[in-house]
Nucleic acid binder design. Structure first.
Length: 508
RNA sequence: GGUCCGUUCGUCUAGGGGUUAGGACAUCAGAUUUUCAUUCUGGUAACACGGGUUCGAUUCCCGUACGGACUACCA
């Protein structure tokens, strides 16, 4: 396949949600696979919805998951600027061209007039209340007004919008890479606003103009754009760019876990799991939405999970590195139906990735979570992660499950005490602590053999007192391999913990 | 309401005119294990429905149902 030029074009109206990350990912995979170019374009044509920090958030999110941009805000590129608000002046000429050629027109209708039109149409039982071929001649625009009056209004600075003059009876078809041929009758499309009264273009115009100017070859975006795709085709045609029109691929949506509607920003946290890559604090409401990163997910695990929501390689391999994804990815293998977002699968992926990581890498997560007053060497942290890695799902589990390595227990698991803390246990533990205190470098093997010796000397099976030993050393009823844990703790600490337990735990 | 898109185990999906409809997650059971977890083995579980086409449809076609998206001077 020839090198593609693809773009991810979010609007900075809030946190980038996970569906957007997947869209970015698919674009990125295709770009890398074909040795093409990944472009990031910020679609900030709606000034009323501008959210401070959103743009930076998008950048950081993409960086975190490992999607690298070739052309964009920070990277620059031959088609800069990559922020639509900074390209404002550019769009007008194209709108003007459309007007000059009779494919667009000025409209002066006020909000009230538009509303009146809709209610009037509704009252007459009309099936649609759109500004379209059937209604435009009843409205306040350059098609109905005398030329002089239009000119006068324009000169006087009366607010206006520019609308596309959609042909009234034409079958518009497009070839979608995922869905095949899609046909829509032009009568179903309304006379979309191209230029808003504030002088900004709408998405429809801006997106077509920029895709053309930036030489985009493939538009890969969410299915929510499918209904307006024919409109975009029309725009390409009127602008004389139809032969250079990019190919379209409309991705299946990411649905809520219950399948009821598309996964939306509002679902964050309410469902008990993140849907944003990073923590996001809404600057208006101050509400904090949890991110995947802060919830303990690894970026490559999240990416792997996301890649499989709507795409699959057709083999039975499930674990894919970014490199492998790039190699295996094809648009043909993207599915058509919406995919429900199932966090269980994401957790499983995370677990797999955590397990596969070298202990030294994992150590960072533990070190990071450590309270300031606790210090720990990298080597020790790596060791701890090593014994813990088979049992963690999230990065923060290393600290949560490994706390006992740093803090001697002050309370003990009740169930173990009632069930396993008996005379035999006390006898063995007392002897064990004594036996251990002579040892300098405690290893797991030595800890085990010493325990076996002590126990067998007393005629007691080790199995019977292991739980008691665990509870005295860790305070808990379950945890990683006890002998290896004791090796990490060191002999002195182990002995003191056992002695403290022996003193503290009173069996009634 | 209209337009468009979709529909294989609970979930993500493979498959495709003749298959014991495959895998993974989840779930259940058993095994291993010093606990819990891991791991291993096994089980439950799906082609939305109705018509065609065909010797034969889960697969192709048409309907219906259901779901979703869109229907803004939002993207």
């Amino acid at each position: 396949m020839r090198p593609v030029r693809v773009r991810f074009a979010p609007s900075p109206t809030g946190a980038l949600h996970i569906g957007g990350v997947r869209t970015a990912l698919y674009n990125y995979l295709l770009a890398r696979k074909t040795n093409g170019t990944m472009i990031l374009r910020i679609e900030d044509t709606d000034q009323t919805r501008f959210v401070p920090g959103a743009e930076e958030y998008i950048l950081q999110s993409l960086a975190w998951v490992g999607i690298k941009i070739d052309e964009g805000l920070k990277e620059g590129g031959p088609h800069a600027p990559y922020r639509q608000s900074e390209r404002k002046a550019l769009y007008k000429q194209y709108a003007q061209k459309l007007i000059a050629e009779g494919n667009a027109y000025y409209a002066f209708d006020t909000e009230e007039e538009l509303e009146a039109m809709r209610t009037r149409l509704k009252a007459t039982g009309s099936v649609s209340q759109q500004y379209s071929a059937t209604t435009r001649m009843m409205m306040n625009n350059s098609l109905t007004l005398p030329e002089a009056e239009v000119k006068q209004k324009l000169e006087k600075g009366i607010p206006y919008v520019i609308r596309l003059k959609v042909p009234d009876a034409e079958e518009i078809q497009l070839q979608d890479l995922i869905r095949g041929e899609v046909k829509v009758h032009s009568s179903q499309i309304d006379d979309k606003v191209l230029m808003k009264s504030d002088g900004m273009p709408t998405y429809h115009l801006a997106n077509v103009v920029d895709d053309y100017l930036m030489k985009i070859t493939h538009v890969i975006r969410g299915e929510e754009w499918l209904p307006s795709a024919p409109l975009h085709v029309l725009l390409y045609r009127f602008l004389g760019w139809e032969t250079q029109m990019p190919q379209f691929a409309h991705l299946p949506l990411l649905l809520k876990p219950d399948g009821n509607g598309k996964l939306s920003k509002r679902d964050a946290d309410q469902m008990g799991f993140p849907i944003f890559p990073l923590n996001w604090k809404d600057p208006k409401s101050g509400e904090l939405a949890k991110g995947f990163r802060e919830s303990g997910y690894l970026p490559d695990a999240l990416l792997n999970f996301l890649a499989f929501l709507g795409w699959n390689p057709g083999t039975e391999q499930e674990l894919f590195s970014m490199k492998e994804l790039i190699q295996a990815f094809t648009i043909e293998r993207i599915g058509k139906a919406g995919a429900r977002f199932d966090i269980h699968k994401a957790q499983w992926f995370n677990q797999q990735y955590l397990k596969a990581k070298p202990n030294e890498d994992l150590a960072a997560y533990l070190l990071n979570a450590l309270p300031k007053e606790i210090s720990c060497s990298k080597e020790k942290a790596a060791k701890i992660c090593g014994v813990l890695k088979e049992r963690v799902t999230f990065t923060q589990d290393f600290w949560q499950q490994g706390k006992f390595f740093f803090e001697a227990p002050t309370s003990y698991d009740d169930q173990v005490i009632t069930k396993k803390w008996n005379d035999e246990a006390v006898k063995v533990l007392t002897a064990y602590a004594r036996a251990l205190s002579g040892i300098k470098d405690l290893t797991a093997e030595l800890a085990k053999s010493t325990l076996e010796n002590v126990a067998s000397n007393l005629g007691i099976g080790t199995g019977k007192i292991l739980q008691a030993l665990r509870v005295s050393v860790t305070g808990g009823a379950s945890g990683p391999d006890l002998m290896r844990s004791m090796e990490i703790l060191g002999c002195t600490e182990v002995v003191s913990r056992i002695e403290y337990a022996l003193k503290t735990i009173k069996k009634v």
